[in-house]
């Protein structure tokens, strides 16, 4: 297992999404990153939300830098902050791998708590994004608000790992057009995002 790419562990999960607490504060993958967790089956998720907050929901952080010149000095002067604050990542489940085959369909069971969460390699991203059957799962996901931003980030990242990135984006664009027939304005905005 690629320890370098391990970002954290599952701390909350359902059959639609899971929450990862990152090992290190502020060391999270970007929105639209493909991650994997679990082993049998291995589940795939896409990061849709990243949050930094107090570990204890009852203890809200207070300002500490009135007498500091730089932001970094706040953390140097208060080393406990790295323990009291956490970075959490929310991922939507988009598929699983059974044996050698990737299935882009809803998972039947959520990942276990404390499952290791690993950022997928370029090769894994290329393999996963060769098929975009999971797009309807994202487009119609009831849990996400800014899903179009997530999709465009994912597609842009994926395009970079394909040999012909512009051809991949056209393929992805056509898949979006197919799934968003009747939502021309949304499609137009999405396409504008991924064409940048």
């Amino acid at each position: 297992m690629n320890i370098n790419k391990r970002i954290g562990e599952v701390v909350e999960s359902s059959s639609l999404q899971f929450t990862v607490q990152c090992y290190d504060l502020y060391k999270s993958p970007n929105i639209g990153t493909l991650v994997k967790c679990g082993s049998d089956p291995q589940l795939f998720g896409i990061v849709y939300d990243v949050s930094n907050k107090s570990m204890d929901p009852a203890r809200r952080p207070v300002p500490r830098g009135r007498n500091e010149n730089k932001e970094e000095e706040v953390y140097l002067s208060n080393p406990q902050l790295n323990r009291l604050l956490i970075t959490e990542v929310n991922c939507v489940l988009v598929g699983y791998q059974s044996v050698d085959e990737i299935n882009q369909s809803p998972v039947s069971l959520p990942p276990m708590i404390h499952s290791f969460v690993i950022e997928c390699s370029d090769e894994e991203l290329k393999r996963f994004s060769s098929c975009l059957d999971f797009l309807p799962l994202l487009l119609e996901s009831p849990v996400l608000n800014s899903i179009d931003e997530v999709i465009s980030s994912f597609l842009i990242k994926s395009s970079r790992v394909h040999d012909d990135s512009s051809r991949f984006l056209i393929y992805a664009g056509k898949e979006l057009a197919f799934n968003l027939s009747g939502q021309l304005i949304r499609l137009n905005n999405l396409l504008k995002r991924i064409s940048k």
Binding site: S166, L169, I170, G173, K174, L176, A177, F178, N188, L191, K192, I194, S195
Partner: peptide, 9 residues
């Protein structure tokens, strides 16, 4: 890019 995607889909 948008023109290419829209045409034919």
């Amino acid at each position: 890019f948008i023109a290419k995607v829209i045409s034919g889909s």
